[in-house]
């Protein structure tokens, strides 16, 4: 059951990821990214991270991507113009990336025997454990992040408001 779910949603994630890269229209890319995020949320559930799965959907799919879609619709962005790529990048890009991926996968596989298996339910963390850790061990980073978010809000308002002449 675990394996079937993993393969199903991993496939969806990879297909959506490829679709993000090859789609011509930004809206198509945005929807593919939402697909990736949704399937990642299911994988988080399989890994026992319930709270993170929910937050993934609320924050990423529900807020950040809505913002992206909103901006794409607002700017009425069309399909992107092709070209502008130099010959070396066109020739070397894909092979180099494949080598990069192969290297990563090889290293993972090398470490694999020591890492064991993931079974659903062997390690579950709900909101309670996460909250306890967040407000005890990670209180300072938490507060710093809140300041960061505040600065980001101010920055976004300053950048996006209309100039009053």
């Amino acid at each position: 059951m675990d394996l079937i779910l993993f393969i199903l949603f991993a496939t969806i994630a990879v297909v959506c990821g490829i679709s993000l890269v090859v789609q011509k229209h930004p809206i198509g890319s945005a929807l593919s990214l939402i697909g990736v995020m949704g399937s990642l949320a299911v994988l988080y559930l399989l890994l026992g991270a319930e709270f993170i799965a929910a937050v993934q959907l609320i924050v990423y799919a529900g807020a950040i991507m809505v913002l992206f879609v909103f901006v794409i619709m607002l700017l009425n962005a069309g399909e992107e113009a092709p070209g502008g790529k130099s010959w070396p990048s066109r020739l070397l890009g894909v092979p180099l990336l494949t080598v990069f991926l192969g290297l990563l996968a090889y290293l993972m596989q090398l470490m694999a025997p020591s890492m064991g298996m993931v079974t659903f339910g062997s390690f579950n963390t709900g909101a309670k454990e996460l909250g306890r850790s967040l407000f005890n061990n990670y209180l300072l980073p938490f507060e710093v992040t809140s300041v960061l978010v505040l600065i980001a809000i101010l920055g976004a308002i300053v950048l996006a408001r209309k100039e009053i002449d």
Partner: peptide, 25 residues
């Protein structure tokens, strides 16, 4: 592999694939 367990490395490889796709994009 058994049907009710997923090797840890598969998750990491999936992560690597998605990261590479991100780099490509």
């Amino acid at each position: 592999p058994q049907l009710n367990a997923v090797p840890m490395s598969w998750y990491l490889i999936l992560s690597a694939i998605l990261f590479t796709l991100g780099v490509a994009g």
